[in-house]
Design a protein around this nucleic acid. Structure first.
Lengths: 355, 355
DNA sequence: CTGAAAGCGCTTACAG
DNA sequence: CTGAAAGCGCTTACAG
């Protein structure tokens, strides 16, 4: 019961290797009757192509291009480091990762970076979704060339991207509300603030949406008094939150759903107010310290390691035309409490950057 | 800048393909001086072996044997289904998964199943750790043959297994305590019970240990009044918990750390007592319903999909002698609250079984 | 101890 | 529209 090979197709169908190969790879210039005959044989003997042999023969290289924001946040640094780390190991497996950087929140720059790519440079492209009218046009152009684009971390659902790889952000926002709601005293009015990075990002919008939905449905005692956009900048976040803490001295809690942890921590420490309940995102060095000190109550985390791994596996499947389990693209939102932090090394992301 | 191949080694070193291959694969019968010369060349030209070409030439098949408990719990059914699902897809990649079943909690049966394996049948073995004096002996025998054994879900740290794939169970127990502790009224005495499957299992012991540690350190108001072992059986769990609810009518919470959710739910419903706070494990159909009804407060989950995927990737790396990122084996504990359940399909495990 | 040749399962020019 | 031959980067008998 040896696995059937192309030679078996040749033997059974009577056609030559070259013709069989043409049919198998749907290349032009074969009579319909021949195609039918070969395909029938394939079905009959249950042939399935050995992809690594095919790759070896054709000298295929998987060129995967990542376009990531250059911003200096801890999370984005981890993401970039993850890509860089894998470059050398993957070369041995015929996978060539290239990494391009663009300014954060800059859809135009993203579109420009995409415009420089083609099937010559990339067999698959991974971007962090940032809205701009030119982006879908570029994605469509690349798709027409046969190059799929994937969104990572922040989705662009109607852009023509083939897949989104990242956490379920609405569910993450719901989790944040569920935790904050239960951490606050029951049936007592309480004020909450939200610190986002930018509501131009779909992941931030989705988190906010989920957060609001659960609060409204289950915690009518809680009101959101401010939704701030700190631009994922330490400075802006610090200023906005400091202002907010002054305006609402009775603030009971905060959901920090962007990458502004550093600014959040300094604003809180400087304000020296009574402790408030805080749920934040991404277990960066700063967030970890805040959790340990009891400043943060919970941190929702996504693993750059798993995200980049999923991007590569998905890209390879897409390039090979091989089936892919979509569950692999659904990155899990991890919830960390003070008592449940993993050792620094097992974070699944190599920490760098500044906050 | 083409990637160097064996032919380049031949050209530069002056030796033949056969000799180069012998050195590369550390086969016997080569003069030390020759070995040295070839290895020097390898270093000089930066050669790195193309594993898929090697596999093609040698006709290698990755034989991975899973020995899993046959018990009918939802979680174990998912795990088995996960292995079965992948069998056909992986054949095309020269990976042959075989699945053997043994009775749960039966270390002797596990040792016996192991005793039937050898390097002829398996290149890598995955077991759910169950203690028995014969198990380490079998693992050692297989290791001597060059066959690594991995533990999945429940570890056997000093058995000689090469790696553990699963969640950090102590941390999961800590998370459970942290959640339950915060869900209960602050500074008010409260009684808690724990329902385990069997404390013979390391994963259950570890969860209990982490749970106790956090309660002691942070929630001195809480006492554990009972640690029960329901054998992951609906019936036993039902009886033990019903009894416990009668004995402690003021029970405030429960940590169900094994696979006895079905029995837990029926005991609670039958007791008709006041609601208690519950944290359980594994987002099975029963747990999901209990979460939706508000019967359970939180569920800690591990994904069979990710676990089996990690087993296969680790096994392949081990067989190839290729580097492996240990982070891939650290399966994340997911925390689900009522408001954060994913759709049934994206659980990363195909649900079956009875509880 | 070493080497020449054939082959793994596929694809690629090149001829016809 | 179809086929014979060579080759991808390795390994495997078989000879010497």
């Amino acid at each position: 019961m040896r696995k059937p090979t192309v030679h078996d197709i040749v033997r059974v169908s009577g056609y030559s290797l070259a013709t069989v190969d043409r049919v198998l790879n749907r290349r032009a210039g074969v009579r319909p009757a021949t195609i039918e005959a070969v395909e029938e044989t394939v079905r009959k003997i249950g042939y399935v192509r050995d992809i690594s042999a095919a790759n070896l023969a054709s000298g295929r290289i998987y060129r995967i291009t990542f376009i990531l924001p250059s911003a200096d946040s801890s999370f984005l640094s981890s993401l970039r480091a993850e890509v860089e780390q894998r470059q050398t190991i993957l070369r041995a497996e015929r996978v060539e990762l290239s990494l391009k950087l663009v300014p954060q929140f800059d859809g135009k720059a993203l579109a420009k970076a995409l415009s420089e790519l083609s099937k010559k440079t990339s067999n698959s492209i991974v971007i962090v979704g940032t809205d701009h009218p030119d982006v879908p046009a570029q994605i469509a152009r690349l798709a027409a060339e046969g190059v799929p684009t994937l969104t990572l971390v922040s989705d662009l659902p109607s852009s023509g991207r083939l897949h989104y790889i990242g956490i379920a952000n609405t569910a993450a926002g719901r989790a944040a509300a569920s935790l904050l709601g239960r951490f606050l005293p029951k049936n007592t009015p309480a004020k909450l603030a939200v610190m986002a990075g930018s509501l131009k990002l779909k992941d931030h919008r989705d988190r906010l949406k989920g957060f609001q939905a659960v609060l409204e449905a289950e915690f009518p005692n809680v009101t959101i008094v401010a939704v701030l956009e700190g631009q994922d900048s330490e400075d802006t976040t610090f200023k906005l939150l400091s202002r907010c803490l002054k305006d609402h001295p009775d603030l009971a809690g905060l959901y920090s759903l962007g990458a502004g942890n550093r600014g959040v921590v300094s604003a809180l420490k400087e304000a020296k107010g009574p402790p408030i309940r805080i749920v934040a995102h991404e277990l960066t060095t700063v967030a970890r310290a805040a959790l340990e000190e009891g400043l943060f109550d919970a941190v929702l985390h996504q693993s750059p390691y798993q995200e980049v791994g999923a991007c590569i596996r998905l890209s390879k499947s897409l390039i090979d035309g091989t089936p892919f389990d979509p569950a692999d693209a659904e990155i899990r939102t991890e919830i960390f409490l003070r008592d449940t932090m993993p050792p620094e090394t097992s974070l699944g992301g190599r920490e760098k950057g500044t906050g």
